[in-house]
């Protein structure tokens, strides 16, 4: 193991840790993110971070074929973001109302009897949303 290898492998490990932290923070934004567009931005960012991971693995293993995988993942991520943007444009309620906070919903268990009521209410409000979208 030469000096160059030592420098490179320690840098790669450090970068793995940094990217991991960045990945978790971005995932937090996806979970938290009050509106749909926030989540889409975070998902776009997630693709970028995964491309970074792939690049690191390419350096570590020496398989440069991973570059092609990274490029195609970038293409898929770009198309997904474009599709999401179209989806936001045609979203029923206009995305104005913040979506329920998934983090809070996961952390606090819903009380039993209320659940049914909530389900009925959302079913009732759906036609109103549709009508708005059709206009």
């Amino acid at each position: 193991m030469t000096a160059a290898d030592v420098i490179l492998s320690s840098a790669i490990w450090l970068a793995f840790v940094i990217l991991g932290i960045a990945f978790l923070m971005t995932v937090w934004r996806v979970i938290k993110g009050p509106t749909l567009a926030d989540r889409v931005v975070a998902l776009d960012m997630l693709t970028g971070i995964v491309i970074g991971f792939i690049a690191l693995i390419a350096i570590r293993t020496g398989f440069t074929l991973y570059i092609d995988i990274a490029i195609s993942l970038g293409l898929v991520g770009f198309l997904a973001t474009v599709a999401f943007a179209r989806f936001i444009l045609s979203d029923g309620d206009g995305g104005k109302a913040p979506k329920p906070d998934i983090a809070r919903a996961l952390l606090t268990p819903p009380p039993g009897p209320r659940r049914k009521q909530a389900g009925r209410r959302s079913a009732g409000s759906r036609p109103a949303v549709r009508r708005k979208a059709g206009k």
Binding site: I18, A22, F23, W28, I59
Partner: peptide, 16 residues
Amino acid sequence: ILAGAGFALVAAIGLN
């Protein structure tokens, strides 16, 4: 590598 990872981290911090 480190600069790239650092910028990714900064972007994630900014996102939050």
